[in-house]
């Protein structure tokens, strides 16, 4: 799993390529990811990268920017 794969996935789920460029943007604040987007993202992460992140682990303080998400996933890979 490369960082770029994570950004691509995020762009797909958020339906906006801006997340590939602004890596420190708060995607919840920006309204790009909601509760349901989070679920799609977690299911995709599990299917594509084989990493299962429990829903309660995915909090909006530590998983709110593309960079942070990529880092959290890299730590678990």
């Amino acid at each position: 799993m490369e960082k770029q794969d994570v950004y691509d996935l995020l762009a797909e789920v958020c339906q906006d390529d801006v997340v590939k460029e602004e890596l420190d943007m708060d995607i919840f604040e920006a309204g790009l990811l909601d509760s349901f987007g989070t679920i799609t993202l977690l299911v995709e992460i599990e299917e594509r990268f084989g990493i299962s992140v429990p829903i309660t682990e995915f909090n909006r303080e530590e998983w709110n920017t593309p960079n942070k998400i990529a880092k959290e996933l890299a730590d678990r890979a």
Binding site: S35, F36, T40, E46, I55
Partner: peptide, 26 residues
């Protein structure tokens, strides 16, 4: 309720693909 009921239910449905439509699941 959001974390332990709604999110779990939606995650489960999405993963098992029992219901395809996101809006219906939600």
């Amino acid at each position: 309720f959001r974390d332990y009921v709604y999110m779990r239910f939606a995650f489960w449905m999405t993963k098992k693909k029992w219901i395809k439509n996101r809006v219906t699941i939600s």
